[in-house]
Design a protein around this nucleic acid. Structure first.
Lengths: 315, 315
DNA sequence: CTGCGGAGATGCGACAAGCGAATGTCTAGC
DNA sequence: GCTAGACATTCGCTTGTCGCATCTCCGCAG
């Protein structure tokens, strides 16, 4: 019993107002009766009585209703409160509605991107899983190289991107969910001198080969691995399309690098030689999202699907 | 264990939203931190954390904030909610402000009316009591006959009216707080034949007298009492002002009725003769308010003052 | 004038919400 | 790796609010 008297909250003018009280207030004002309002709201009359009493005490503006023998009637203060209570109710209703619409739009939508070879097996499997679980989600897919996909992520045009890294430091502003480290293969035509090579072959063996690549410069592509092995590959033909690349290789015009994800889908007259990992790992594949930005439910579900699909793919 | 399973409120999308949660939400949004917002609001961090969690659960629109290592940041849903939360806060603030203003205006104001002779002693006494207790209340006074005062009450221009009834049935729509039943006196000049009459004199003794009255017709005035005694008084002079009336009487031009409330303030050369109550009571004085309309605090205090003043007046 | 019925107020017991304090988890920075 | 900062979680307790039953007040009908 010390001096901490804490001032009992008798007649506290700053008391908080419950939205429940306001809803009840409006209902009572509409019907002019506590009892009817109580029935409408599914409560008892005593509850409504105390709700209004609480509201009157909290607002400290005197009675809001005159208690009459046949019901109640708004006082001047009550009439003054009505429009504000309606404003509050409308604001809450609008907020709920708009949040629902947002949830519908964001939760019912998945925008993801992936680099080309991920589309060979990983993405289709993941997408099949995802569609089975979230059939109503509208999915949009974008194809592109890793840097472009990350830009799209930052710009908010994508929810998630399946990206690869050739060993460079991943950017700090992304959340990278590691999926797998994929080994590389060199695709050579049947009959190539090294076609019968046993076990992983060092990439340096192809330092003098003609290369088929999607880009004239190796930087930023799979051929970056060649640079790390100490030689600059000679790009004999720039071919973007994977099927076309295979054609060039099969015709003996050169060799090309094939990531593991695409290894399953090579034509039979081509031999894949596993590249020996020397030093840096071949290539890591991630599902990237923006760090600190919450995932939509759809993106979260797709991330799960991608992980499960990854587990099904032979590493 | 019947079918009334009542669906436990897990994940109830229709849950109510507390205004406290919204206030906390805005504070967190402003500062970008639960901890800072908690300090600002005088709560603990854990409280704020649960407030936001409750709000997110109630709105069911996903997280409102992304939890980052250095604080929090609004999500899309959170950004969407901000203006609505501000609308609610503003509406509540406005309501409080306007109610305060109303309270200030209504609580600091007293509008009352009284009939003329009540101003002789009753109203001044009551007003003195009231002003001593509520010195800051602005008082406006209106003078008028009972019917006019009642009309002003109904129209909302008066908070309270001191009215009299000559025996007619009081209207149902007013709350009549009985103050006193006042006897009537007949004012006669010194030397009048009946001036020395012992005890109450029947009004019929003045059936042939010349009357001084405020109105040519007796209906609705004090002279209504004469009608109830079975004679129609001859109004010789129509004089409204009380002082002037006394002059007329002193000059021997006629007699006039004086209600008890004005009995104290007659000039010395006039004699008052108590009228004998025969049948209906002379006149009742009430403080009238509108039935079913709540009294302002000032009106309530003034009503008390009038009652106390009544007790001090000799009946 | 005396019950009767309808309307709001209130006491009571029970349950749920919400608080503070202490503790756990995660991340960044040294 | 350790410390510091920030949010989440658990625990015990206070406070608020419900339903139920009851009370009071008022108008109405017999």
């Amino acid at each position: 019993m010390s001096s901490m008297a804490a001032m009992p909250n008798t007649h506290d003018a700053g008391a908080e107002v419950s939205t429940v009280w306001l809803r009840v207030f409006l209902e009572v004002a509409r019907h002019g009766s506590f009892t009817v309002a109580a029935r409408t709201l599914g409560w008892t009359q005593s509850a409504v009585s105390r709700q209004i009493a609480s509201l009157e005490a909290a607002l400290d503006g005197g009675p809001l209703f005159d208690r009459l023998p046949r019901g109640v009637a708004l006082t001047e203060a009550g009439r003054l409160l009505v429009p504000h209570a309606e404003t509050v109710a409308a604001a809450l209703h609008d907020a709920r509605r708009e949040l629902g619409a947002l949830r519908e739009a964001a939760g019912g939508r998945l925008r993801f991107g992936a680099f080309a070879t991920a589309d060979a097996a990983l993405v289709p499997h993941a997408l099949a899983l995802f569609r089975a679980r979230r059939p109503r989600v509208r999915v949009t897919r974008e194809e592109g190289l890793t840097p472009a996909l990350l830009d799209q992520l930052t710009a908010g045009h994508l929810d998630l991107a399946v990206v690869s890294t050739t060993g460079r430091a991943p950017l700090e502003s992304y959340e990278l969910h590691h999926l797998l480290d994929e080994p590389l293969y060199v695709a050579v035509p049947d009959g190539h001198p090294l076609a019968a090579h046993e076990g992983p072959v060092p990439l340096g063996h192809f330092a003098d080969a003609d290369w088929i690549s999607g880009s004239a410069r190796p930087e930023g592509t799979l051929l970056d691995a060649a640079l790390r092995q100490g030689f600059r590959p000679r790009v004999a033909h720039v071919v973007g399309e994977w099927t076309a690349k295979q054609g060039y290789v099969a015709a003996g015009l050169g060799v090309t690098l094939v990531p593991a994800l695409a290894a399953e889908s090579v034509r039979p007259d081509i031999t894949l030689l596993r590249v020996r990992d020397e030093g840096a790992p071949a290539r890591a594949v991630y599902a990237a999202t923006v760090r600190g930005r919450s995932l939509t439910p759809a993106a979260s579900a797709f991330l799960d699907a991608v992980r499960e699909a990854t587990a099904k793919i032979p590493a």
